[in-house]
Design a binder for these strands. Structure first.
Length: 587
RNA sequence: GCGUCUGUAGCUCAGUGGAUAGAGCAGUGGCCUCCGGAGCCGCGUGCGGAGGUUCGAUUCCUCUCAGACGCACCA
């Protein structure tokens, strides 16, 4: 369905035409003077220049045309040429009625028929998730939901770091500890054990140990390198061991992502892209794009008009090995071949901007990606501590994600216990739900591209622009609706025209729901949803304060209010779902 | 050195070629016979700096200052 802004604009256009003004100028925006009006049109000022006429006179003529328009309760011209619009309560409530009946709050299906791949994982196998993975997961999960809401078919890909030297390190370290295992017996012909020779906690110890050793011990480093090569050449035993590492890591990762309410449709990794590399390189050669430079094979991607130097994209190192860009390009080959996506969106740390510039340019130049396929890089900023520097543990190390989450849950739990009497086990469960909301909202309410300051105390506060405040509001709405039902009131979905200021303010805000979500989708900006639902929460709390809903004796009024609450609940629930968290029943 | 991004209230963040630049926190003053007071209603201060384009610039352009980040064989 049309957005409310579109409805208003379409009502204005005939008035513009009637005055001999280009109807294209009838754009409408939310008023920035709520004391004067609800929506405003600045078209008369733009028209003044083109038609050599005083802007206020034009505005006056247009306003005169609007006299009998049912959309407006009031339309007036204001100096120097604003057209100030106040909507009629009947129009607003009718719009909301349509919205309530519509699918997805009447949201435009801009992505209908389109397929998008979202790449927002990037964890390494055999290594625990840490806060560096947090933003990709949170932002990516939200975008996935937003895209789906806009009608896209979306595939979320975790894109594991499961190839290269790290695997060689683990394999070599395992070999030195347990040389007797069949994986290391070149003559072994039988089936390898189904059980892995290590657990996830073993792996988490083996990898850093091996990594440290390789830096101190040249012989070990060389052996790890050999192991990597053997694995890449398809050695049977090493491949079997690799499968164990992968399986164990993926199981652990799934568990941890689940705690974050984050999921992926594809569990592909760098290893899956390897088989596409030879053909891809051949293609680059045949296209005449690949050439030797300082011993490496590269593709030039500098373009005219670059303000900075864009170094060539390295496809093969001097020693013939492939690297980051190679794998990412091969992954694109695979994605194009398997899915034919219309869009691929990477949610990755913004420091990798240059890398993706190189990869994207190479992909288009080489025809790996169709020209009409949109490749987008959403580079997100760093999560910093209160000191403004990248977030660390108190000891200065990298914080594991599960520890961060546990800390937040504990803090929320303490707050629940000090405020309310809730049974302890119940409070623990609730604290997990609220904690996740606090974490995600705290992150998502910032512009993704900017660095932000992580402050537990602020994020878990129940006051202000926080996740818990949104949840509190939603829980409050649910509680009233529940009580109404308990009182035997049949919940109505008949909205009524607003009878006063706070009711109208809430209605106007709810009428913008589909538009706000569409904005977030177009701008790849979940923080716009945060801002919107925060405004809805504030508007509801004001409305709540002004109206005694359950005590209202006029059933027509009460029904209208309950219907309004129902819609507010729907909008808030949709909002938090798009952000990737849930609300508890009580808090 | 070159480049990219960022700079908005004491702090954390929104926002816009247009009217009086918004929130929250912190500070402070009110509001509970009433559906959840974890709420509501008040009170103060600000677009890093200098030019330019424009009827109008915090927004666009140039320069400048400050900070973060990036500048081929790591991922």
């Amino acid at each position: 369905m049309k957005t409310i802004t579109e409805c208003i604009r379409e009502a204005l256009q005939p008035a513009f035409s009637a005055c001999g003004i280009d109807p294209e100028l009838a754009g409408v925006v939310l008023s920035n003077r709520p004391d004067l009006c609800e929506y405003q049109c600045n078209g008369a000022m733009a028209a003044a220049k083109r038609y050599h006429k005083a802007p206020l006179a034009i505005a006056g003529e247009i306003v005169a045309q609007l006299e009998n328009c049912p959309l407006f309760e009031k339309a007036e011209a204001a100096a120097p040429g604003f057209i100030n619009l106040t909507l009629s309560p009947d129009f607003v409530s009718a719009y909301l009625q349509d919205m309530q009946a519509a699918q997805k709050l009447g949201m435009k299906q801009a992505g209908a028929g389109k397929k998008a791949i979202l790449d927002y994982g990037g964890p390494n196998v055999a290594k625990p998730l840490h806060v560096g993975h947090l933003r990709a997961a949170i932002i990516g999960e939200s975008l996935k939901r937003i895209y789906r809401f806009a009608g896209y078919e979306v595939l979320g890909d975790v894109h594991l770091g499961d190839w290269g030297l790290q695997m060689g390190l683990i394999i070599e370290e395992t070999r030195q500890r347990h040389p007797e295992l069949p994986y290391f017996d070149p003559g072994f012909q039988g089936d390898y054990p189904a059980e892995a020779p290590f657990t996830i906690s073993d792996l988490e110890e083996i990898y850093p140990t091996a990594s440290r050793k390789s830096k101190e011990d040249e012989a070990f480093a060389a052996a790890a390198h050999d192991a990597t090569v053997r694995l890449q050449q398809g050695d049977r035993g090493y491949t079997a061991l690799f499968r164990h590492i992968l399986r164990i890591s993926v199981n652990d990762l799934k568990k941890n992502y689940e705690k974050l309410n984050v999921s992926f449709d594809l569990w592909k990794g760098e290893s899956d892209a390897q088989k596409y590399i030879p053909d891809m390189i051949r293609g680059l050669k045949e296209a005449g794009l690949l050439h030797e430079s300082q011993g490496a094979m590269v593709v030039d991607v500098a373009e005219e008009g670059d303000t900075k130097e864009v170094p060539p994209c390295i496809i093969q190192k001097s020693d013939g090995a492939s690297l980051y860009a190679t794998t990412d390009l091969a992954t694109l080959v695979q994605r194009e071949q398997d899915y034919h996506p219309d869009e691929i969106l990477y949610v990755v740390d913004k420091r990798q901007d240059m890398h993706f510039t190189q990869v994207f340019r190479t992909a288009y130049k080489a025809g790996i990606i169709r020209p009409e396929t949109k490749l987008t890089f959403l580079g997100f900023g760093t999560m910093n501590g209160k000191d403004g520097k990248p977030f660390k543990t108190r000891e200065g190390g990298v914080m594991r994600l599960e520890h961060l989450i546990a800390d937040i849950d504990e803090a929320v739990f303490a707050r629940i216990m000090e405020n309310r009497t809730m049974e302890e086990t119940e409070a623990r469960k609730t604290a997990e739900i609220i904690g996740l909301a606090a974490l995600k909202y705290g992150d998502l309410s910032n512009q993704a591209t900017k660095n932000y300051v992580f402050d537990v105390d602020r994020f878990i506060s129940f006051e202000g622009n926080t996740g818990p405040y949104i949840l509190y509001t939603l829980v409050r709405i649910k509680s009233i609706l529940r009580k109404a039902e308990e009182n035997g009131t049949k919940l109505s979905d008949r909205l009524r025209p607003a009878g006063d200021a706070s009711e109208k303010a809430l209605q106007l805000l709810l009428a913008r729901a589909n538009e706000a979500i569409a904005d977030a989708c177009e701008g790849i900006a979940p923080h716009r949803i945060c801002q919107y639902i925060y405004e809805v929460s504030n508007a509801f709390n004001s409305f709540y304060h002004d109206h005694r809903i359950l005590a209202e004796e006029d059933p027509e009024k009460q029904n209208g209010w309950l219907a309004l609450l129902g819609l507010a609940r729907k909008v808030l629930e949709t909002g938090i779902d798009l952000l990737g968290f849930d609300a508890p029943d009580q808090m």
